[in-house]
Design a protein around this nucleic acid. Sequence first.
DNA 1: ATGGGTAGTCACTTTTTCCTGACTAATTGT
DNA 2: ACAATTAGTCAGGAAAAAGTGACTACCCAT
Lengths: 103, 103
Amino acid sequence: MTTHCDISPADGCPAERLLKALSGKWKAQIFRLAVDAPVRFNALLRQLNGANKQSLATALKELEEEGLLEKEIVQQKPLNIQYTLSEKAKSLIPVFRQLDRLA
Amino acid sequence: MTTHCDISPADGCPAERLLKALSGKWKAQIFRLAVDAPVRFNALLRQLNGANKQSLATALKELEEEGLLEKEIVQQKPLNIQYTLSEKAKSLIPVFRQLDRLA
DNA sequence: ATGGGTAGTCACTTTTTCCTGACTAATTGT
DNA sequence: ACAATTAGTCAGGAAAAAGTGACTACCCAT
């Protein structure tokens, strides 16, 4: 076994998992917006030109499931929900910046 | 504009491009194998269980187009082609390792 | 000349992903 | 009461990605 992380198991090393987690449509963009500020459903719908409810809902749900975004109900009264980057996600930011420089 | 790289243009920042370039099926795995040694078509077909010619051909072509892999004809006589990581791709390895640690 | 290796391509089917439009359910403003 | 906001869901269709099996073309060993 010469690879730095095993190849056989159903699905790969952490980096590969992350890659997959960010590979659906809109996901990378949502992540980038979330770097700057918490994101919200309808706001995203307006910001991301061409996006639709269904795809955004799926993207948000999956980003949450992968532990990159955290959903929080800010207010119940006038319904207000926001998604923020998890600590894990925040720790990835410098790495992505580095990628921006190199790629 | 608060984003660290512009959101509007057809397709995003370098990191996002890279992400997309590695998001097709088998691509990440091919990349990982190529880190250890040059890869070859039929060898990949055997190494990557479940992979098929068509998908590998596409993956290799696209990785090449994105400037991550370089195709070289080692021998013409008994046909022998290999794909190696480009310099750019090699420069990304430490970043991916970091990702492995954090993700 | 038959079988096996190299590296693919081509047409077609299946699977997955994405998009569309209608609908829910609650709150706020006019 | 009515429109608009919030955040979604659901069924169905279109589009994109992936897989299948047959085929090419060339080389080498038996």
